[in-house]
Design a protein around this nucleic acid. Structure first.
Length: 298
DNA sequence: CAGGTC
DNA sequence: GCTGG
């Protein structure tokens, strides 16, 4: 299908510069652990992923180093896009070390068990779409929705012979009917996405401005969109705008703070406040380690 | 059994 | 409470 790396000629494999050696589990948790919804494990053990007009395959070497390839001819822009997407300019070892693991034994265990885990920097608009689809859905279901949206309403990725389609842009979504969206397995989310599309498509600079605004203002703006609550807004800002202070409280964080921090019975707003106070300005990064650990163990 | 917003 | 892997 459109999710397969079958057709085009591919570039040579190249090392993913500035990225640490990781285990297969950490790589899987990074690209397919709830941050992004267009990475697919291939039968040969590689990962096939798409964002914007980028198409790439990742391969993990025996030494833990990640290599990538892309459709022949797109090497230059793919290399630049990978650097942004995987945050290779950010010093994640230093950021992770700045978390309060020295005084938090559980956090220390989470960091130890997922060395190299990091926060992706995805396209803001696509991240909003993904998390508008995410309400009461599991990762596999969200991924199906994204592939249906891309296949039915997304434009072909230029230069790949029509083999791949990008996600529809917000103006393209605005041109869909709610029924067409609903047909992509969106359910009640179709109305939210359609209404958000009408709003965003009528305001060409709104998303770009929201992406760069200070966290409180950006979050307020996102919360005004239909279907965007606290959790979705924080996911969009964390995974689509690099706002590491965003602390999304989903059911896993609810569980893990309840179990590991003796906060059972606390409500999500209280837990968000705890998270900011306890984990500090990089609370979102801490959240990703807690989330991964609780899904793996717990 | 999993899992946000209004 | 409800839908779907």
């Amino acid at each position: 299908m459109s999710a397969g790396p079958a057709d085009p000629r591919w570039s040579d494999w190249q090392p993913l510069a500035g990225y640490p050696a990781v285990t297969a589990e950490v790589l899987a948790e990074t690209v397919d652990g709830g941050q992004a919804f267009r990475w697919h494990a291939q039968p040969d053990g590689t990962w096939f992923g798409q964002w914007s007009e980028i198409v790439a395959t990742l391969r993990l070497g025996a030494d833990g180093r990640v290599a990538w390839r892309c459709p022949a001819g797109s090497e230059t822009r793919t290399a630049a896009a990978l650097a942004t997407y995987f945050g290779t300019d950010a010093d994640f070892p230093a950021l992770t070390d700045a978390l309060p693991w020295r005084t938090d034994a559980h956090l220390a265990r989470c960091l130890r068990d997922f060395p190299g885990l990091r926060i992706l920097r995805q396209p803001f608009g696509e991240t909003l779409l993904g998390f508008l689809c995410s309400a009461t859905k599991q990762i596999v279901q969200i991924k199906q929705m994204q592939e249906l949206l891309a296949a039915r309403h997304g434009a072909p990725v230029p230069g790949t012979g029509g083999a791949f389609r990008r996600l529809p842009t917000w103006p393209e979504l605005a041109a869909c009917t709610e029924a067409e969206l609903r047909a992509c397995q969106l359910g009640f989310r179709a109305r939210y996405i359609w209404e958000t599309a009408q709003f965003v498509a009528a305001r060409p600079d709104w998303l770009r401005e929201t992406e760069t605004l200070p966290y409180p203002e950006a979050k307020d703006r996102l919360l005004g969109l239909p279907g965007v609550g606290e959790k979705v807004a924080d996911c969009v800002l964390l995974f689509g705008a690099g706002r590491l202070e965003a602390f999304p409280v989903d059911v896993w964080i609810l569980k893990t703070l309840g179990r590991r921090y003796a906060l059972d019975g606390w409500k999500p707003p209280q837990l968000a406040q705890f998270g900011r106070a306890h984990f500090g300005p990089l609370a979102g990064l801490a959240q990703q380690f807690l989330f991964a650990w609780e899904r793996r163990h717990g």
